[in-house]
């Protein structure tokens, strides 16, 4: 009964606001871009090291804040974002070196990343304070553009977040499928012991993946800190969002993360515009629906079960 009422309400609201589909589409893609930057690193780490890295949100926040400080120093967004990503890559590597000591032990691993997440959040509060702040977009990407036909005014930087995510996705694909390191990484995902036996230093591969994930999170922090803002609590919000994307996409799958980011981003934007009251319900409902149809996520493989 309640379902029918809810369904009726959704249809009614959808008819009410009909002419904003392009805006909703772009909003959804922007969100998807940010989610993908976060989720790709998250899922890569999980696929390889089987660690649910709960400090990934902390890396986002610290990356954003570092970029903020650097931008105030240098005045250049790209340098700031780049160095911020380098910093979080380093931090993520350190996290791996600590994590290595309890490797293979699920609970201590998760707890350790949880501890790291809390430390990072408190460090952000101590160093940058509780006042929210944001980065200035680079000069070329400031302001909004009139989309063809003056149908819509859309901020340039939001569009570039989508481009940035697509570029990052392309680079990741090239790395994973066109380089020797990439094939090693993929082989390590499939059978770590065998790769190790072949004389490859698996630890080094893991370290690289952690650094890469850290860099992506830092970059996401700079992007999110520019078109949204940096504030306490952002780390948890983005962690939850990327966790939903990673689970929906299939743990360990970059392609899955991309598809799920777009699906979740669009569903969220649609829900917030047309059914704001139910937006959280609809987003999680989508996740549940995906998991019912594909229990391992959109691109999740079942190979582990056979082993």
């Amino acid at each position: 009964m309640a379902g029918v009422a809810l369904g009726g309400y959704i249809v009614e609201r959808s008819l009410e606001i009909g002419d904003r589909s392009l805006l909703v589409l772009l909003n959804g893609l922007t969100a998807a871009g940010l989610y993908f930057l976060m989720a790709s690193g998250f899922t890569l780490v999980f696929g390889l090291v089987r660690v649910t890295n709960l400090a990934h949100g902390g890396l986002y926040l610290l990356g954003g804040y570092t970029a903020l400080s650097l931008q105030r120093m240098t005045g250049n967004w790209f340098i700031a974002a780049g160095l911020g990503a380098v910093a979080t890559a380093g931090l993520s590597t350190v996290l791996y070196l600590v994590l290595r000591r309890v490797h293979g032990d699920g609970l201590p691993e998760t707890m350790l990343t949880l501890g790291a997440a809390i430390v990072m959040a408190d460090q952000a509060l101590a160093n940058w304070g509780g006042v929210p702040s944001d980065l200035d977009p680079p000069a070329a990407l400031r302001g909004s553009i009139d989309l063809p036909g003056s149908i819509l005014l859309y901020p340039k930087f939001r569009l570039s977040v989508v481009a940035m995510a697509m570029l990052a996705g392309l680079c990741l694909w090239l790395l994973l499928y066109r380089t020797r390191l990439g094939s090693t990484i993929r082989a390590s995902v499939d059978d770590r012991d065998m790769v190790s036996i072949l004389g490859i230093r698996v630890e080094l591969v893991f370290c690289t993946v952690f650094a890469l994930a850290g860099a992506l999170a830092g970059l996401a922090g700079a992007a999110g800190g520019t078109y949204l803002s940096l504030a306490q609590g952002e780390d948890n919000r983005i962690l939850l969002a990327s966790l939903i994307v990673v689970i929906a996409g299939g743990l360990g799958s970059i392609g899955g993360a991309a598809v799920a980011a777009v699906v979740i981003g669009l569903v969220e934007a649609f829900a917030q515009t047309h059914h704001a009251i139910f937006s959280v319900l609809i987003t999680f409902g989508t996740l549940i629906a995906i998991l019912v149809l594909r229990p391992h996520g959109i691109f999740g493989s079942q190979q582990d079960e056979r082993a």
Binding site: T52, L54, I118, D304
Partner: peptide
């Protein structure tokens, strides 16, 4: 790496629980 069918869903639960704790 093996027998992760159960391990995987367990991990998802653990992760979600941990987020709540967080």
């Amino acid at each position: 790496m093996r027998n992760l069918g159960a391990g995987r869903s367990w991990r998802i639960l653990a992760a979600l629980a941990a987020v709540v704790v967080l």
